[in-house]
Amino acid sequence: MAAIPLTVRGAARLKEELHRLKTVERPAVINAISEARAQGDLSENAEYDAAKERQGFIEGRISELEAKLSNSQIIDPSQLEADGRVVFGTTVDLEDLETGETVTYQVVGDTEADIRANLISVSSPIARALIGKSAGDVAEVQAPSGPREYAILEVRYI
């Protein structure tokens, strides 16, 4: 299995979720199952069915997180020496040349990508267009709405 790239912050978030699932969610669902069992006939017990379904989801998510963390390659952007170029983990300030809007993105792995938090996947069209470029360069992105051009204002390793 290929290594999954993660930033330090992304790995910490996955570890926190795994810890919460194991120490809070798993015990709660076990209690819910035992309470539902105590009610008697399991064949028509909706609480029991719901708790068993929730348990399956939690156990599946725990397995998924453990696999991701065991196969991850954790990259600390502050330790990178990329000579001002955009690489995995860097934070980039961009200006849309058409609208003049500025936006800041961090290039992260697929696992931790969240556009609402300005975390873009390294495999996304915009990240692929930015990789290897430096401040002052213009990146052309093939977006679904057509080509867009972004000026790279600043590249930070934080």
Score class of each variant (00 low, 15 high):
residue 92 V to Q: 07
residue 124 S to T: 12
residue 121 S to D: 09
residue 85 R to I: 00
residue 128 R to G: 06
residue 94 L to K: 06
residue 98 E to R: 07
residue 92 V to E: 03
residue 118 N to M: 02
residue 122 V to F: 05
residue 89 G to I: 06
residue 118 N to T: 04
residue 128 R to T: 11
residue 113 A to R: 10
residue 95 E to V: 08
residue 110 D to A: 14
residue 131 I to Q: 07
residue 120 I to T: 10
residue 114 D to T: 03
residue 103 V to R: 14
residue 91 T to V: 14
residue 117 A to L: 06
residue 117 A to P: 03
residue 96 D to M: 09
residue 128 R to Q: 15
residue 93 D to S: 10
residue 97 L to T: 13
residue 93 D to N: 10
residue 126 I to F: 02
residue 97 L to P: 01
residue 85 R to Y: 08
residue 127 A to E: 00
residue 96 D to A: 06
residue 131 I to W: 11
residue 104 T to P: 03
residue 113 A to C: 08
residue 101 E to I: 04
residue 129 A to Y: 06
residue 85 R to N: 02
residue 102 T to N: 08
residue 117 A to R: 00
residue 122 V to L: 14
residue 93 D to T: 13
residue 103 V to N: 05
residue 115 I to E: 12
residue 94 L to H: 01
residue 114 D to P: 04
residue 120 I to E: 00
residue 84 G to M: 04
residue 130 L to K: 11
residue 117 A to E: 15
residue 130 L to M: 10
residue 89 G to V: 07
residue 101 E to F: 14
residue 112 E to A: 05
residue 97 L to R: 14
residue 118 N to A: 06
residue 102 T to C: 01
residue 93 D to H: 02
residue 104 T to L: 01
residue 124 S to D: 13
residue 124 S to Q: 14
residue 102 T to R: 10
residue 96 D to P: 01
residue 125 P to D: 01
residue 127 A to Q: 04
residue 121 S to W: 08
residue 95 E to C: 00
residue 93 D to A: 06
residue 111 T to I: 15
residue 131 I to E: 00
residue 91 T to C: 05
residue 128 R to W: 14
residue 101 E to M: 09
residue 113 A to G: 07
residue 119 L to G: 07
residue 101 E to K: 13
residue 130 L to F: 06
residue 91 T to M: 11
residue 120 I to R: 01
residue 119 L to N: 11
residue 98 E to Y: 12
residue 102 T to E: 14
residue 92 V to A: 06
residue 116 R to E: 15
residue 85 R to H: 09
residue 98 E to S: 04
residue 116 R to S: 15
residue 110 D to E: 13
residue 109 G to Q: 09
residue 104 T to G: 00
residue 107 V to P: 02
residue 84 G to F: 07
residue 115 I to R: 11
residue 86 V to S: 00
residue 106 Q to E: 13
residue 123 S to E: 14
residue 120 I to L: 09
residue 124 S to K: 15
residue 118 N to E: 01
residue 131 I to N: 02
residue 115 I to C: 05
residue 89 G to C: 06
residue 106 Q to G: 04
residue 112 E to Y: 10
residue 99 T to F: 15
residue 129 A to L: 09
residue 113 A to L: 10
residue 94 L to F: 04
residue 102 T to Q: 11
residue 97 L to E: 11
residue 129 A to D: 04
residue 107 V to L: 12
residue 128 R to S: 12
residue 99 T to A: 09
residue 130 L to D: 03
residue 94 L to T: 08
residue 114 D to A: 10
residue 85 R to M: 04
residue 102 T to A: 02
residue 115 I to H: 14
residue 102 T to D: 02
